[in-house]
């Protein structure tokens, strides 16, 4: 039975990031989460596995903290999980990440379809699917808003800046999906309990024989401060606040 893989990323929840006065960033209080858009990629893989009669598998790459992600990912439907574990993931750039995922896909070997989200909620670089396709030399279909599978042919509607494009591709292929592709369900208690019993494989990154040196050199990471007036009217009667706001807007000349 062939595998239908959803690649997902365990990321820092950006809502918990604190920006210090010197613009350095503090992620100590940040919890991890499955990258928002990856939930739709996971659901797409689960649905495709049902159609193809294959087995859905959630595949991730990351450091020790990523272990926590597996139960969450599996509660969303995949039959199996696979974690490429490394101490180096924090330093990994898109080139390294794609090589690790592609190497694992080759190791899993009987794979008919790989799903990714368009981008991750931390980096939103939108490189992973095309890069995996290039490394495996598989066909790639990105920006997919709708898909149908018949036999071993996938028909996808791609949403581009100026048009909708329908393409056909024979599997295996790498597909990146837009969040609108499906409604990713919120796992119920039963699904969460079942997730703990699903098989998980850990692959040590070193076993994959990849060059882990990133191609990009990060020279600075700093917080972005919105430079806004922050005139917030919180006291008093609604009518007075509205009057005051209207006066400000007239003065700004934006009406």
């Amino acid at each position: 039975m062939s595998y239908i893989i959803a690649c997902y990323k365990w990321v820092v929840d950006e809502a918990d990031i604190r920006i210090n006065p010197d613009l350095s960033i503090d992620t100590k209080k940040s919890k991890g989460k499955i990258s928002d858009y990856d939930k739709n990629a996971i659901e797409a893989a689960v649905q495709a596995a049902n159609i193809l009669g294959g087995k859905s598998l959630g595949l991730t790459f990351g450091g020790p903290e990523t272990r926590l992600s597996l139960k969450d990912a599996l509660s969303r439907g995949p039959a199996e999980g696979c974690w490429i574990s490394t101490g180096e993931a924090a330093k990994a750039d898109a080139a390294v990440t794609a090589k690790a995922l592609a190497a694992a896909i080759q190791k899993i070997s009987d794979v008919s379809l790989v799903f990714c989200a368009e981008g991750a909620s931390d980096t939103y670089a939108r490189q992973t699917a095309p890069r995996i396709g290039a490394i495996l030399d598989w066909p790639v279909v990105t920006s997919v808003s709708k898909l149908d599978i018949e036999g071993s042919t996938l028909t996808a509607v791609r949403k581009l800046d100026d048009c909708l494009q329908t393409v056909k591709v024979d599997l295996p292929a790498v597909v990146s999906v837009l969040p609108e592709i499906n409604d990713a369900p919120i796992p119920g208690l039963k699904a969460v309990l079942a997730a703990g019993k699903k098989p998980v494989t850990e692959i040590k990154a070193e076993e994959l024989g990849i060059d882990f040196s990133p191609k990009t050199d990060v020279t600075e990471i700093k917080g972005y401060l919105m430079n806004r007036k922050n005139i917030i009217l919180s006291e008093g009667e609604a009518a007075d606040k509205v009057k005051e706001l209207a006066a400000y807007l007239r003065k700004e000349g934006v009406l």
Binding site: A94, K99, T123, P130, G133, A134
Partner: peptide, 19 residues
């Protein structure tokens, strides 16, 4: 553009910065 750029970077195994 993003698609062809990342595919090219994948074939070249080189660095890429998006957007």
């Amino acid at each position: 553009g993003r698609d062809i750029a990342a595919r090219t970077a994948g074939y070249l195994d080189c660095g890429m910065v998006s957007d």
